[in-house]
């Protein structure tokens, strides 16, 4: 019997890489604690959507929570930096940064929100897809309508690229593209695949505007109940689950990419991203306001 059972929330369903990674973490933790500490997972948003489960984690009702950075942008300002468009040059660049001192700094910043940042997971890289034409330059974006999440930064990013941003629930995107209410949307390979959007939006431009990691946090209240030794065990098990998650994610991404390519989607890979990045200057000016965040941006850009 487990002495301590940590309840862990995820909005993704069972079998999704993040859920599997936390399962792996649970097994590792059980072994390292000689069977004393276990993890119980509530997948598929059983305990609520991310905004709600974050609050519940702060209250100490949920012990562990796998969340996107988006809902944290207003609560932990440091999370805005890796959420900036075109901040990372590639997935490898993102890994290097988040595994390094900047990543540690962001994890530490969760303390200000009664949370303990444990580790980062991959959220994939998001690119634009549409039903109209292959986008090869910024000029192609002009006047096109893209669905975005209800987020100010997404709206500002799409506007800065010269397109129209349309906030809309995810479930309505498919038929809206089909009926021409919008021209396209933006997402990563697996979502582009599982949503079926590739069936109606056959042009995918790999501009990788967002490579935003996700985060595993722990409730400060639950954390403080653990002995320092157990805290170290939890921290270590979380860190060790990240490579597991990344492998699963890459396999999933590869499978989706193969399926989508086989379906005859036209994929644009070789675009010059420089004008896209230059167009982000006003967005950076709006969201990167204090010196701390500015220095973080500079350090990320300087990271090889």
């Amino acid at each position: 019997e487990c002495e301590i059972t940590l309840k862990s929330s995820d909005t993704h369903p069972d079998g999704y890489p993040t859920v599997e990674a936390v399962k792996a973490m649970g097994e590792a933790l059980k072994t390292s604690s000689d069977g004393r500490i276990c993890i119980e997972i509530f997948a598929s948003a059983q305990l609520g959507e991310e905004k709600d489960t974050i609050e519940q984690t702060q209250f100490g009702v949920i012990d562990l929570n796998r969340v996107s950075l988006g809902p944290f942008n207003n609560i932990v300002p440091e999370t805005q930096v890796p959420s900036l468009p075109y901040i990372f040059r590639s997935v490898d660049h993102m890994h290097t940064v988040m595994d390094g001192p900047v990543g540690d700094e962001i994890l530490a910043a969760f303390a200000g929100a009664d949370l303990v940042g444990l580790t980062f997971y991959d959220g994939g890289s998001r690119s634009f897809y549409n039903s109209e034409k292959p986008i090869t330059s910024m000029a192609d974006m002009a006047g096109m309508k893209f669905r975005v999440m209800q987020s100010d930064m997404f709206v500002d990013m799409v506007s800065a690229l010269g397109a129209n941003a349309t906030p809309m629930p995810y479930g309505e995107v498919y038929s809206s593209i089909q009926t021409g209410v919008i021209d396209g949307a933006e997402n990563n390979w697996p979502s582009y695949d599982t949503s079926g959007h590739f069936e109606v939006a056959k042009y995918y431009t790999l501009d990788q505007h967002l490579i935003v990691p996700e985060v595993l946090v722990m409730s400060k209240i639950s954390w403080d109940k653990l002995s320092p030794e157990d805290q170290a065990l939890v921290k270590q098990a979380a860190k060790d689950s990240t490579p597991v998650m990344r492998d699963l994610w890459q396999a999933q991404e590869k499978a989706s990419e193969d399926k989508i390519r086989a379906a005859g989607v036209e994929i644009v890979t070789d675009i010059d991203k420089t004008p896209f990045i230059e167009a982000m200057v006003p967005v950076y000016e709006k969201y990167v306001t204090d010196d701390k965040l500015k220095s973080m941006v500079e350090r990320i850009q300087a990271t090889e």
Binding site: Q150, T166, P167
Partner: peptide, 14 residues
């Protein structure tokens, strides 16, 4: 706005 004027009200849902 969405169907006739071809633009979006960002704030209408919230």
């Amino acid at each position: 706005f969405r169907y006739l004027l071809n633009s979006s009200l960002i704030w209408s849902e919230p």
